[in-house]
Design a protein around this nucleic acid. Sequence first.
DNA 1: ACGTACTAGTTCGGTCTCGAACTATCTCAG
DNA 2: CTGAGATAGTTCGAGACCGAACTAGTACGT
Lengths: 138, 138
Amino acid sequence: MVVDAARLWTLNHRLLTVVLDACTDELAELGLETKEFFVLAEVAASPYPAELAAKLVISKASMTGYVRNLVAKGFLRREIDDADLRRQRLVLTTEGVTARDKALAALAAGFDRRLARITPADRSELQRILLALLEPAN
Amino acid sequence: MVVDAARLWTLNHRLLTVVLDACTDELAELGLETKEFFVLAEVAASPYPAELAAKLVISKASMTGYVRNLVAKGFLRREIDDADLRRQRLVLTTEGVTARDKALAALAAGFDRRLARITPADRSELQRILLALLEPAN
DNA sequence: ACGTACTAGTTCGGTCTCGAACTATCTCAG
DNA sequence: CTGAGATAGTTCGAGACCGAACTAGTACGT
């Protein structure tokens, strides 16, 4: 049976939206806006603002604001990149790591309720396939 | 290997975002903003603004604007609900149906372009797993 | 009947996000 | 060297989106 890709996309999108919406309050208690959370979650993998903006599909302009807020909140620190003075390497503070991990745990808890419906084997299958889908174009 | 639910959510979210972003231009050519497209795609299933807003997890205030635009563009028509004069039943026009179907096709094509990167076997795996996650809850 | 509580949709003001233009820095061909 | 073109990050003005308050209509207990 072939399922329409658009329908799959739409349902999937709704699922993620609902899960995220359910976590918004918990994130706020940690002192994180939704988008700031995305930034915090990925900054270790992509420490430069421009790179991070591209990965998260948001503008550099927005990234400037999120980084400013996260620095002000003490979750992030800017370090000068000696190799390229245009760039600033973003580093998680101890508080940043703590907040990120708590936030990820909150999201995981929300999504886990859904994931309980599939087997652990299917979970790693899903992760493998999603990674393959994202791989080439990051 | 244990798979983190938050990671799964994040990967999935990024995939959907990238796919949608790639379709934005095509939607614009059809005369549709992204959010307007979501509305158009669901209005047949949920013809009342408040109901639609809840399903798409957007505010009634935003819905007011989207409906106004879609009516102005000739994709939607408001009909009075005789049973409840507070409500307005939203009806797709012929143009609305056409635009919606083209837009859904564009999204499906965009998603398919991604799906082409993985094997057919993985594709049906993905579909099976996502359907298991999505099926029961709307 | 009617008043109280509820629901549908709109309006308004403020915040979020973006594209475009800008500054500072890097790269590299000549 | 050096200057033309590319890239990192910021600022600024405009439009998108939301919460709260509002208007209009419904539901129902008494």
